[in-house]
Each structure stands twice: as C-alpha cells, then as structure tokens.
C-alpha cells in the first residue's frame, strides 16, 4: 500500500482554489517556460526562414528542401509546445482534449453538411481554449492534429497552426472577448489572419497547393495574375481563414453560452478570468 499523503502540499500565492495544476517547483516552471519559448521560436523561425529562402523558380519540381524544413520546424515547434503544456494540465482539462478532437471532426462535418465553403475544423479547439485557457488551447490544437492524422495524415503538418489558433482563442477568452457575442468573431478574424499566414508555407511547400477545390480556385486566380505559389496561397489563406475563424469563434461562443453555468464554472480559468459575461460566482444572477 502506498504511503501518499491524503492532502496535497500547499501552493504558493497566486493560485486560485481550483489550481491543482500549479504543482511543481520554480525550476520546473522555468523549464516549461523555456520549452514554450523554444516551441514558439521554432515556429516563428521556420516561417521567416521559409519566406526568405523560398525557391525563386519552382519549374524544376516541388522543393524537397523547403518541404523538409517546413515539416521539421513546425512539427518540432508543436512537439515542444505539447511537451511544455501536457504534463502540467489538470485532469479536468486533459479529458477535454479527446472531446475537442472529436468535436473538430464531427462539428466540422456537420457544418460541412450545410454546404458553406469553409473548413470549420477548429470548433472543438476554440471551445476548449475558451473553457481552459491558452496553454490548454495550444496543446489541444497541436495534439488534436496529431491524433487526427491517424485518419487524415495531411493535417499533421498543420499542427503548429492549430496550436496557434488554440493559443490565441485562449488569450481572447482571458481578455474578455467572449463576454460579448459580437467581439468573438472579431477575435476570430484576427486569429485567422495569423493562423492563415503561418499555415500557407505548409500548403505551398509540403503539398504544392491546397486540399480543396474551392480554395484551389482562389489560388488559381492569384497564380493567373502572376503571383508566386507562396504568395498566391498566402493571399488565399488571408481571404478564407479570417472568415472561417470568425464563424468558428462565433459558433464556439454560442455553444459556450448554451452550456449550463454549473458546467462552465467547473473550469477555474472561466471563474478566475471571468470569461463569460455577467456570471460572477459571488453574485449569481437571479
């Protein structure tokens, strides 16, 4: 029989009553912060490198060099972010990750059945980010890409972009942008711009184009005007992604509003940062 103590050691100041994830020493926290920074740096560095060294002439075939750099750099970044966040996430957040993934897939398909020309593949990630915060959002985004790749390997290289979406959604929630319904799509729009720009090199260098016919048509139009492949795909992403993410954030907001308060208030992040409007624990509305 193990001789664990019945109570957990007291944590320092600054952790709310629900912060059971705060375990760990100052050294551990610094290491995790370093991992997070390294992950973000790997993603940003890869993006800058790819844009600067993009092949001037792609007439000789797809660039293996850029593909390898894009794959390696972005995946490394995603893995570092997961490694930084995963071990310290509380179980209550962890069990949401499979749910987020399932919602990404299923809600994506449901919305796809309405015939609207968007991807809607991040609803679950955004939902979890709103409930559990930026770190959980980033880990959820990256991890769900990895698991999703078991059915569709082409989403694997986009793990870094998915992490960015989750992270930014969490930041928006912390900043109170989900308290008013009309602010959520604005946050989604901005997120879409950044996520689209980061994902464009993957589409251009790893896949040589986009996965859908609709998006392919938009890229074709820019190519017809003489743009380079990366420029054309980036412009296409800047058209589709902000719109897509604005809708996704709005849907996520509607879903969060539809949840009962007992459910949303389970999440320390929602309580501490007052993510949802008018719902303060001390003075609940009638």
């Amino acid at each position: 029989m193990s001789q664990q103590s019945l109570i957990l050691p007291a944590t320092g100041t600054g952790t709310g009553p629900g912060a059971d994830c705060a375990a760990g020493t100052a050294k551990g926290r610094r290491n995790r912060r370093l991992l997070e920074l390294a992950g973000a740096a790997a993603i940003a560095g890869t993006y800058v490198f790819l844009v600067l060294t993009q092949p001037a002439d792609i007439a000789n075939g797809p660039a293996s060099f850029s593909a390898l750099v894009a794959l390696g750099g972005f995946l490394l970044g995603a893995v570092l972010l997961i490694a930084a966040a995963l071990p310290v996430l509380p179980t209550s957040t962890l069990v949401l990750m499979p749910v987020a993934l399932v919602l990404n897939v299923v809600l994506g398909q449901l919305m796809g059945s309405t015939g609207l020309p968007f991807y809607f593949d991040a609803i679950g990630t955004v939902l979890i980010a709103v409930l559990a915060g930026p770190a959980a959002g980033a880990a959820t985004g990256a991890l769900s890409s990895i698991v999703w790749s078991f059915f569709n390997p082409t989403v694997l290289p986009f793990a870094a972009g998915a992490a960015l979406i989750g992270f930014l959604a969490g930041l928006a929630a912390r900043g109170g942008l989900f308290r008013r319904f009309y602010l959520a799509p604005v946050a989604g729009f901005v997120t879409g711009i950044l996520a689209g720009a980061v994902s464009a090199p993957i589409a251009a260098f790893v896949f040589g184009g986009t996965a859908g016919l609709g998006t392919g048509a938009v890229v074709s139009a820019f190519r017809a005007m003489g743009d380079t492949l990366l420029a054309a795909i980036t412009k296409q992403a800047l058209i589709s992604d902000p719109m897509d993410k604005a809708i996704v954030f709005a849907i996520a907001a509607l879903l969060v509003y539809a949840l009962p308060r007992r459910t949303t208030f389970q999440f320390p992040f929602v309580r501490r940062h007052r993510v949802l409007a008018g719902k303060v624990p001390a003075t609940p509305e009638a």
């Binding site: 962890l94 499979p98 749910v99 698991v147």
Partner: peptide, 13 residues
C-alpha cells in the same frame, strides 16, 4: 497523458 488523449479520442470518434 499523451497516450490517454490518443486512445480516448480513437475510442470516442
């Protein structure tokens, strides 16, 4: 945790 998320998602889907 990684194994949990992987296996749980694959059983949920």
């Amino acid at each position: 945790q990684f194994g949990f998320v992987l296996a749980s998602a694959l059983t949920l889907l």
